[in-house]
């Protein structure tokens, strides 16, 4: 049985729903079953947001991932990645952006956060904001993170490209192209991180 339970984490407005939609579309290419629980409403105003995304080749029961069962935490913000560690399975991966989103006065010290992340047995840290800037599309850092986490999601690169094409389709070919570049840059950065 193939299943992939993913927690997407970030701050309202950082584009985690676009990541979820891209994975969802990529999964549909393989006719997988999926459930994806989103956060709408009050928390979207700069608050902590999360989405539970469950892919399987069999029917998915619960919309929420049970604690201790997530195969992947994909976070676009480092402190937000840590908020969901009770959901991570023993063999699960934590893949996070290292660029902080500081909109609270008691935001912890950056190095302390990264230290906690490094305590996780399986983790990847990427400066997605920097990579997105380098490729000339600072708004694509969420898709850089999708690229980085993609090797822990059992779907093909072609499917991910198709997913990106579908969710950005309305915005034109240029936007699709830059997001595919962002995806590939993230995937490469992850491989480099793991090689180190």
């Amino acid at each position: 049985m193939m299943k992939s339970d993913i927690i997407l984490a970030g701050v309202g407005g950082q584009g985690i729903l676009s990541i979820a939609a891209a994975i969802g579309m990529a999964a549909l290419e393989d006719n997988l079953f999926l459930k994806q629980a989103e956060v709408h409403g009050m928390s979207q105003r700069g608050g902590a947001v999360q989405s539970h995304l469950r892919l399987s080749n069999e029917d998915v029961a619960s919309d929420l991932i049970p604690m201790g069962k997530a195969d992947l935490i994909l976070s676009v913000e480092p402190m937000e990645a840590l908020r969901y560690v009770p959901w991570l399975s023993k063999d699960g991966w934590l893949v996070t952006n290292t660029a902080s989103f500081v909109n609270i006065s008691n935001y912890p010290d950056r190095e302390t956060i990264l230290g906690e992340i490094r305590k996780m047995p399986r983790h990847v840290t990427i400066d997605a904001d920097k990579i997105a800037e380098e490729i000339g599309s600072s708004r694509s850092s969420n898709i850089v993170m999708l690229g980085a986490a993609s090797r822990f999601i059992p779907l093909s690169v072609g499917n991910f490209h198709e997913g990106i094409r579908k969710i950005f389709g309305k915005k034109g070919e240029d936007i699709i192209k830059i997001n595919i570049i962002a995806f590939e840059a993230g995937r490469t950065a992850c491989e480099q991180y793991l090689d180190k």
Partner: peptide
């Protein structure tokens, strides 16, 4: 959840 994680209200 590590103790350093601060709540982030809307």
């Amino acid at each position: 959840v590590p103790g350093i994680v601060a709540s982030r209200p809307p």
